[in-house]
Nucleic acid binder design. Structure first.
Ligand SMILES: [Mn+2]
Ligand SMILES: [Mn+2]
Ligand SMILES: [Zn+2]
Ligand SMILES: [Zn+2]
Lengths: 147, 147
DNA sequence: GCTCATTTTTCAACTAAGTTGCAAAATAAC
DNA sequence: GTTATTTTGCAACTTAGTTGAAAAATGAGC
């Protein structure tokens, strides 16, 4: 998604050392066209080297607390993550019931919807997560509708 | 939430026998002013009798597949459920970062927001889940903001 | 370069939610 | 009452994520 960020600089701004793993996690999230589950991130790194899952969980947890990445809670047991840099303002997501993938609906601004919601919610609302559920085009194609 | 439904009838319509446990689950969800986590449902029933968690998971799973109840995926590891009868059309939810409770924002109609989203999504969208995150009034009161 | 303090990564063990297959119990149909 | 079907329970398992403490890597001061 974002080749535009300087990840070393980003980490520095948050007093985090630019270790190989931290940079790799950011690169992976930055290159992904969609939000990724932890397992996928782990698997990608493990094609190159060995890592302990605890390390990845801790890296993701730290990034999330600092607001560098966003955590997404989709249907199912695994959590997904995506970059939260200025090139990726918050947006709704689409999750496929078949394959479980989580697509970004970047064309839909959350700001607009949030305005409506905030009228009712007041200032207590810190974040809004919108998840649309359905069948993705890829899966639709696999099982064409019977006529 | 809903004392207005005839649960025996509801189960009958779906060819499910009106067993004590199934009715109890519906009553609990119907009486709750908010969505409940599985653990809470289990705990409530266990104040009255002994139950195996598997049974509850199966009852909730069946209800969910039949559209009798709705599953909510909040932050955290436990799933929440709520009645999905005609008295409870889909609506956004508010989840507190402190206590984790999931309140229903019934005053906000999803239909309106869905219209906007559907323009972009086409007919592939089967369901929309909106989750607002923040601090609930109860928890706000416990930790008053420092002036 | 060497020493010490701090940060990062690993390891092993654990927790908690949810699942599976099958047996026991309850219920309905005959 | 006997039998077939549905529901519930039991035990064992899976999977995502967590914990605490040790080992390894790094950085600062010398
Ligand atoms: Mn996204
Ligand atoms: Mn609700
Ligand atoms: Zn799909
Ligand atoms: Zn609260």
């Amino acid at each position: 998604m974002s080749q535009w960020c300087n990840f070393r600089q980003l980490l520095g701004r948050h007093q985090l050392r630019p270790t190989t793993l931290r940079l790799r996690v950011l690169e992976i999230l930055g290159a992904a066209p969609q939000a990724l589950p932890v397992q996928k991130i782990l698997a990608l790194i493990r094609t190159e080297r060995s890592v302990n899952k605890v390390t990845i969980y801790r890296i993701l947890g730290d990034f999330c607390n600092l607001g560098i990445i966003r955590k997404i809670n989709p249907e199912g047991r695994s959590t997904f993550y995506e970059l939260a840099c200025e090139h990726h303002p918050p947006h709704p997501h689409f999750q496929c019931r078949r394959c479980g993938e989580v697509q970004c609906l970047e064309s839909i601004s959350l700001d607009h919807l949030c305005e409506e919601l905030k009228e009712v919610l007041g200032p207590g609302a810190l974040r809004v997560e919108i998840r649309v559920e359905g069948i993705c085009p890829k899966c639709q194609a696999l099982t064409p509708k019977k006529v």
